[in-house]
Amino acid sequence: MEHLEYKFDGGNTQTDMLKSTVQGVVSSGNLEVLIERKKLNGKCRFIIDTAAEGFAKTWQAVLSRFMENHQPADLQFSINDYAASPDIVSLRLDQAYEALSGGKK
């Protein structure tokens, strides 16, 4: 297991979101993403526990892409990962963000 944490500067704070959501299941090649709205001075924090060790750079790349795409702010992401591939991680992040914003862009 490897514990990773990342912090990103956020974009625009949206207020019409749910307080929190969880998407995905911790099973082989899959992960669960819990997003919570938190006051983080506009930043976004990612707290990751992953079964696949040595992929810190890949996580950095996947999360940067997610931040670029959605420009969220004041969100905390807690991720339990059972060695999902980067595309699955991207998909779950998008899915969780969509659920949090109620499907609105």
Partner: peptide, 17 residues
Amino acid sequence: PSEKPASPHLDMFNIPK
């Protein structure tokens, strides 16, 4: 899930919670 109730035992087996 936001209260993060999870197993205290799985860490020692290197298994995700």
